[in-house]
Nucleic acid binder design. Structure first.
Ligand code: FES
Ligand code: FES
Lengths: 155, 155
DNA sequence: TTCTATTTGGACCGAAACAGTACTGTTTCA
DNA sequence: TGAAACAGTACTGTTTCGGTCCAAATAGAA
């Protein structure tokens, strides 16, 4: 469905919430303030900690805090942290593709990947919080001439 | 992993191949010329047919042909046909999200979705075939200030 | 006209990835 | 020393995905 995992969704919510106070916050507290079930938010935070996006403080009175200001954390970074690398297709770089020899459109996918990566890298968590995405980008990048073909395919 | 399904990958390959001859082609033929396993390419074509991207002709001497020229079929359209709608998160439009009330960043995801949709809509199958993506877009849209934060997260 | 070869159409099934949960161990502060 | 909080791992149920199989339809030949 080309949708990012629910975990990533939660991660963004949690991170934005974290960025609102500049102090360590525990998983239970974050769970209550975000509405995300506690075990889940804990898992997400753990992953983000290993990826260096949040800094953890163990022990009593411990918790998590952002490793960078919201302005410096891009959506792409969060997605990569949770879901792994952003490569749309299997046939990139060292990827294996059954049809490699006959396919014809060799590494064209890399271009598509780059396009998406760029789109996601241009949006920061601060933008998510402040609703300023359009401003910063000056209008969502390239015009995009409608969806083309668009067999309304909304099914 | 934010990767699109292998089926979509195959779909693009098959469609580009289809666009090279302006005549009906059968699944077995396409399978041989693309290297994609026959049952799989058949399935892909079937889906594309229901979505109106290719036109099917049943019976003996039947096969498939493109419903539009390659220039008018965007990557986004193909993805939507195979993988369903492009909505990165569960909490869009009518989507359900557990944390709706407390999350704070209401419909901000819609913006992200739009960004991706635009990036994908700007690339057509003809671009894939001719390697002219960069030309048409004048440089992949917005600069994208590095990945930001980029905890190399390539794991 | 009938029959058959050919090709698409739709249903089915097994495998893999994902989300969520639970438990145990380690660290820190009061 | 004890409680609080994170770290890591392992397990389980569910969903999605990739692949296979059989039935309906059409064109052409007999
Ligand atoms: S689609 Fe994989 S090599 Fe072309
Ligand atoms: S993340 Fe779902 S409503 Fe905000």
């Amino acid at each position: 469905m080309l949708k990012l995992s629910k975990l990533t969704d939660y991660a963004v919510v949690a991170l934005v919430r974290l960025g609102q106070k500049d102090e360590v916050t525990t998983s239970p507290v974050l769970s209550r303030s975000t509405g995300i079930p506690e075990p889940t938010v804990a898992k997400v935070l753990k992953i983000l900690a290993t990826q260096g996006i949040v800094i953890s403080q163990r022990g009593a009175r411990g918790g998590y805090r952002l490793a960078y200001p919201l302005e410096e954390i891009s959506i792409a970074a969060v997605i990569q942290a949770i879901d792994g690398p952003i490569s749309l297709t299997t046939c990139v770089d060292g990827g294996e593709c059954d049809a490699r020899s006959t396919c014809g459109l060799g590494g064209q996918w890399d271009m598509v990947n780059a396009a998406i990566r760029n789109a996601l890298s241009a949006i920061t968590l601060a933008d998510m919080k402040n609703h300023t995405v359009l401003d910063r980008l000056g209008g969502l990048g390239n015009p995009a001439p409608s969806m083309l073909v668009g067999p309304e395919a909304t099914a």
